[in-house]
Simulated assay, not measured.
Amino acid sequence: MQTTTQSNPNLRSLTGLRFLAMLPVFLTHAAFEGVFTDEEVSWGFLDAMGTTGYMAVSFFFVLSGFVITWSYRPTDTPRAFWRRRFFRVFPNHVVSYVLALALLSSVGLGVGVLPSVTQLFLVQSWVPDPVFTDTGNSASWSLVVDVAFYAIFPALLTLVHRIGPNRLWYWVGGMVAGVALVPAVALAVLPDTPGMPLGGVSTSQYWLTHFFPLFRLLECVLGMLMARIVLTGTWIRLRVLPASLLVVLAYGLAQQVPFLYRLNAVTVLPVALLTAAVAVADAGGRGTPFDNKVMVWFGELSFAFYLLHNLVLKYGHLLLGHTEEEGELVGRTWGIPGGIALIAAGFAVSLLLAWVLHNGVEKPVMRRWSRRKRTPVTEVIT
């Protein structure tokens, strides 16, 4: 455990970087909507996004492990930690869940009882069936990983703190190797059918690599290890700019390998190095492009934005007009100016709703219930 009870420096740049990472997630989901009448433009948009959204999701898992380890205090208790995490996640999730059901109803769609229940209680990603992960507020699948990570974090932290500082980098290598091994396992042991529309892989292979919480926990633990490396002074002194270039180079390399390896296997280590490099810059008082007030403000809204943006894109698109093709609802399309305007409007509406959710639910709930109220001590005079 950490030997100091003092708080570590605030990681403003990582907060700002959160929203920068949200942009490819938003744009990837926008590309999947196919809002352009010209199919070449729609497919070109999707091709241009590549696997940037997947890399961003990997960053969020690494970031979660890093930040929670960085901020955890020896005086904290598992119960207090779980209380804070519960009130951080579930109120926003429930609001977005109810909104998703309302929007589904508004376009004449429904959700099966079992998938709906699993999504409410954030266990849907454990089920290897797209019906469970692609329904309602489909973005909430990643919260299943977060909840699993939070549940075992106190135990994981104890184990991570038992690793000697001189061995932390070996464990980093082990986590990276584990992440890279997952797609190989999926391709080797799972059937090739039924196939997905993209990627040339089966739905079960994709589920094991992308959704399965147990394997995504490897990225969270990698984030924990990187935090311990920084806190124990065993960081390699890599600066933000070269770390950023490594991410860009790794992403370019990832586009040359089979689809499942593109999701996170090639990019997870550079992403973890960038996370640590940004934290070191913050701790050392060095400015970064991500620590200005605007970026930090956007970053504070990122969790609410993440939960709401796909609802706005998907159901907003359908509410503007749709047809039924082969049993599925397909939203109307526009020319290039109209499609760009629609995506920009989706971003603006998502941001506005995120501000409302953050300030109307997330912050008040955290202030009111995330910490146990201290019982006033009455002095007894004898």
Rank of each mutant, 00 (worst) to 15 (best):
L217N: 01
E219I: 02
V221L: 11
V221Q: 02
L222H: 02
L222W: 02
G223F: 07
M224Q: 13
M224I: 12
L225A: 12
L225G: 11
M226W: 09
M226F: 15
M226H: 07
M226E: 07
M226V: 14
A227R: 03
A227K: 05
A227P: 06
R228E: 12
R228D: 07
R228P: 01
R228L: 09
R228T: 12
I229E: 04
I229F: 11
I229W: 04
I229H: 09
V230P: 03
V230H: 03
V230C: 14
V230L: 15
L231T: 02
L231P: 06
L231Y: 01
T232G: 06
G233E: 03
G233W: 05
G233P: 05
T234E: 14
T234V: 15
W235Q: 10
W235N: 11
R237T: 10
R237K: 13
L238Q: 13
R239A: 11
V240W: 01
V240Y: 00
V240A: 00
V240G: 01
L241W: 13
L241C: 02
A243F: 06
A243T: 07
A243N: 09
A243R: 00
S244N: 05
L245F: 13
L245C: 09
L245G: 07
L246Q: 10
L246N: 03
L246Y: 08
V247A: 01
